[in-house]
Design a protein around this nucleic acid. Sequence first.
DNA 1: CCCAAAACATGACATTGGTCATGTTTTCCC
DNA 2: GGGAAAACATGACCAATGTCATGTTTTGGG
Lengths: 249, 249
Amino acid sequence: MASERDPLSKPLTISSSKRPPVSIDALLDRVPLFNILSRQDRQRLLQDLSETRYGKNDFIFREGEPSEYFHIVKEGTVKCVKSTSDGKECTLKMLMPGDLFCCDAAAFDGASHPGNAQPMGNVSILRMHKSAYFSMLKRNPDAAIEVIKYLGNRLHEAQEKNKILALDRADQRLAALLTDLGTRNGINERQGIRLPMRLTRQDMANMVGATTETVIRIMSRFKRDRLISGTANRLVILDFDRLKTLASR
Amino acid sequence: MASERDPLSKPLTISSSKRPPVSIDALLDRVPLFNILSRQDRQRLLQDLSETRYGKNDFIFREGEPSEYFHIVKEGTVKCVKSTSDGKECTLKMLMPGDLFCCDAAAFDGASHPGNAQPMGNVSILRMHKSAYFSMLKRNPDAAIEVIKYLGNRLHEAQEKNKILALDRADQRLAALLTDLGTRNGINERQGIRLPMRLTRQDMANMVGATTETVIRIMSRFKRDRLISGTANRLVILDFDRLKTLASR
DNA sequence: CCCAAAACATGACATTGGTCATGTTTTCCC
DNA sequence: GGGAAAACATGACCAATGTCATGTTTTGGG
């Protein structure tokens, strides 16, 4: 189920140590929002985009900071995180190359970021000031409609996750996370579907609303049952179908 | 905190038995999306909008049905529900007069509804075929930007709810629900803030991801602690601040 | 106004998952 | 390649919440 994504996601994924250079043009080609722009508008756009690199412990932005820019992930993985005063964290979404963020309301009125954006490893981000973004949308109703579609999809995702958090057990939530990541980003290998991003038990715990210990216990069970293998750096789904069945009861 | 909403929400809220007639124009005045349209476009819009009434046990649409229309709540309350094969339900959102739904991707490509839309009592819904909606957005980039803002807000709401479901205890989730409803829709009265919609323990359970019994127990405790009073038909928040503190630890 | 249905309530018990403690393995950086 | 830090692992215990059973109160339609 992930095979049709391979040729696209491979060159944009940060691999172990060496990272092939990615042109901005090659990225924009893959993003529907930019594909529909006229040649002229797309040239103008390139003027307004700037690229920034971040490392493991940086913040792209923090919760509460004013939201001034529209962002696109160019390389690497970015996580959207909310945290509580007592140190607990909840990872809302992992953004992959081509994903947009802050394409919404906060970019227009004076609102602030509702959560942190943090790199998972080395990432490269394109950004554009909201005024340039805003005027691009005004010139291109079709682009605005692409943003509406994108936001609609993100909303449905968030609502689906709501349902899972509200109704499912921890093992089902974890199975849903793994099959989702496998479907979106997995790379087919002989043994199964490999997840291309580093993902610790702690990372998973933050994504499914459970403690690290609980996730470790469940992953140990999954490993005993030959559903998965490996740890953070090399996580492979051995039996996608059985995992999927567990997730959707 | 709810006082500034009173003059607006009162005439549009379905009251106990008699419901004052509401003109479509009066509703559209309050919806940012329509306020920015030219007089001419707004006239055209009125041609394309049709009104439908639904009662307690109807479905406005069901999960899986093709998504053909853009909707606006005119009167009453609509709930967005997802359910599982084994009969459990999760209420994602309560929509009030002026709220939009299906303003997203599903309205453009051939996608289907990701959940049910069900009335909570008698409601009146305006709808517009996606082709008319689509062309209105193309003619009015500003309208498209309003939709982007609206969807952005809905996404933030959904993400905030994600965080609450992932990290908070049932009593905190319930306190968060009550203060949220109180802030958005509450009506100030002598004893406290009354919630204007009928809301059973079961309804609340479906909104916070808990069982009816758990919600009954927590509500009994809240009642003993003089945080709230009343049941479904007349629910009053007696101590908003304490409830808010409980919610946000 | 009456009565059936829905909503609310409460207890006993089972299960899930959190907490804390302690130990092993893996990773990664110098 | 060696050592500290991070990640993984497991047990004991307990708090939170689900499940099931049973009973009372409230509501709303005829």
